[in-house]
């Protein structure tokens, strides 16, 4: 709603660094935020940042102090829901576990000019754009086994005793379905490819439930499935929860080959 989403000017007179009354250091950090659906294309904002301020905190600050219509997805603020994936300084990341001061220190180490330096934030690519930093993750889930089991045995404190009421400790999957891998995958940007997140989910599902192999493996045995992977490994590098999708794709390829050998095909 605001006519000018930029707040650069009003902070020109403020010191770049100061301390709160309680002695906490604060740094004024400049952000350049993609707003592709707006006439101005980019918004420039200067945000007060403390040691533990995350990118999602900074975006919320902009939203509540400057422009209530800044669009970005967020929910849990601790890296579990997977909604706040963005491209931060040209790298896919979760906004809620990205500490702003880490980005500042990185830029300084790379010799960036302190005064003109800005953290650049863009929406994830390869997904439908909703506005500003928000995308529609439907593209990500289109190639998921939609009913895949989201639970798995917990690896914590291996061998520990389990309450009599349950058969084993369970936990949610590591994959938080954030789409960073799909956004980083060069193949997804080039041609029709199911993408790393969905393929990894297929592999987890047939690993946990081998009885579903006959139904699920044929769905990924194609050029838009496992054979589309060019092994760029970008997916495994950007994954914030250590899923290593590329590893799952290789495992799926092996499972398909093995199934075919056993059934006498090829």
């Amino acid at each position: 709603m605001s006519d000018s989403p930029q707040n650069d000017s009003r902070h020109n007179d403020q010191p770049q660094e100061f301390q709160t009354l309680s002695g906490e250091p604060v740094r004024m950090v400049r952000f350049r935020i993609a707003r592709p659906q707006r006439e101005e294309q980019w918004g420039q904002y200067v945000v007060p940042v403390k040691g533990h301020t995350t990118l999602v905190d900074a975006l919320e600050w902009i939203k509540s102090n400057i422009d209530l219509t800044l669009m970005f997805r967020h929910s849990c603020h601790h890296g579990s829901c997977g909604t706040c994936g963005m491209i931060v300084n040209n790298k896919q990341a979760l906004a809620c576990t990205t500490r702003v001061m880490d980005l500042v220190e990185e830029a300084e180490a790379a010799g960036e000019d302190r005064k003109s330096f800005a953290i650049e934030v863009r929406p994830l690519q390869t997904m439908d754009h909703l506005g500003d930093l928000a995308v529609d993750p439907a593209r990500l889930f289109r190639d998921f086994p939609v009913d895949a089991d989201y639970l798995r045995p917990s690896e914590a404190n291996k061998g520990s005793e389990v309450p009599g009421e349950i058969t084993g400790y369970q936990r949610f999957e590591n994959c938080i379905e954030c789409g960073l891998c799909v956004s980083s995958c060069p193949v997804v940007t080039m041609r029709d490819f199911m993408g790393p997140a969905g393929l990894a989910a297929y592999n987890r599902e047939v690993t946990k439930h081998p009885e579903r192999s006959g139904e699920l493996l044929p769905r990924v045995d194609s050029d838009r499935g496992v054979w589309g992977c060019d092994r760029h490994l970008a997916c495994s590098q950007v994954c914030p929860t250590g899923v290593y999708p590329a590893k799952h794709i290789v495992q799926l390829q092996k499972k398909i080959k093995k199934t075919k050998q056993e059934s006498g095909q090829e």
Partner: peptide
């Protein structure tokens, strides 16, 4: 329905 069905 499972959560993913929201998008599908």
């Amino acid at each position: 329905l499972q959560h993913r069905a929201f998008y599908n």
